[in-house]
Design a binder for these strands. Sequence first.
DNA 1: ACCTGAACACCGTTCAAGT
DNA 2: ACCTGAACACCGTTCAAGT
Lengths: 206, 206
Amino acid sequence: MRAQTVALTSKDVVDAAIAILDEYGLGDLTMRRLATALGVQPGALYWHVANKQALLGAVADTILDGLDDDMPSGDWDLRFNELAHRLRAALLAHRDGAEVVAAAHALRTGRGSTLVLLTQVLTDAGFTEVEAELAALAVLHYVLGHTVDEQGHAQSAGLVAGAASPGATEGIADGPQTVDDPLLGETARFGFGLSVFVDGLRARLT
Amino acid sequence: MRAQTVALTSKDVVDAAIAILDEYGLGDLTMRRLATALGVQPGALYWHVANKQALLGAVADTILDGLDDDMPSGDWDLRFNELAHRLRAALLAHRDGAEVVAAAHALRTGRGSTLVLLTQVLTDAGFTEVEAELAALAVLHYVLGHTVDEQGHAQSAGLVAGAASPGATEGIADGPQTVDDPLLGETARFGFGLSVFVDGLRARLT
DNA sequence: ACCTGAACACCGTTCAAGT
DNA sequence: ACCTGAACACCGTTCAAGT
């Protein structure tokens, strides 16, 4: 087996992991499946990654990569909102992306650069370092909590039947209103909580 | 084997599951371990619960039981704060409690009564039904996001070495400040984000 | 340096058969 | 009604040995 001439890299492993995530979900992202997809024996993966947890950390980092590209320059609240919406979009762009990133953050695997970006916007706005870090962590928690819920709910419904191609959910509009989601689209629901939080922050700025 | 004379009930299964959760954590809460703890073969559990997911839903319900006992009567923001703090405390009272409840909520297993309680406080305060539900969901997401992170972090640190007895973490003060948590105690960090959100809500009340 | 082969110690779930 | 016995189709991780 294994007609390839060149050796595997850690990047190959992470990329293949994301491909499996997109097509089959986190529950089917196993080291053995991953090895099969790469045409290699399971044990071979452990030459490239320390263990599954570290791999998922690297996957989380990749999901969050380039979150601050071409950021608009404007008022802090506009930029803060933009960042939060981008974060949610990045998580939704991969199946179970929110769960992967939430776990990686809780276990302090992954780089955790998102927190730095959010904090920077708030210190620029005039918040103290401590307030900025606390507020950044709070929205991060809100976004993760919301998106894990949103994505988990979509999964438990039957909508994911026809396995989408990688990145297919990126930038699509909210799906049709369902019976147990009779209020608004998910983006609007997300935006509501976010704007309440930003309102509270604005009130604290002298 | 199995000297017991009386049969198992679903409650017995859920209670034993929580005991394992408290002592060994979610990673060690397996159907096989649970069966061994109950002095029974693995297959026997499937007479009492449909599957592991349903069991975890029932565990989540138990964790959240009695969340609104003896609620204080006072201003809405006081009661809202109380409920959010109680929710966090209930999650922290069991090892991996936040993760279990977050998963149960995302998959719509479990009863999800917490949302009703939070919504009620806000409709009483004068919010419209839609605003109240959206805001309730938003804080729930914040609390889950925060507490999953808080609990996961504690786990990844070495603090959980001496397996605590069930409920031992209930109502304890924050642990000592560690190197990567130099700002405040966790309760204060949680309270900061919560009060920002409540400030934002108050501003919306005419 | 990179991977195979093979093992170790596990999983959740099903289901005929027993009592 | 409640449980056993036994199987099915899997897991993550380790590690000597090969090339």
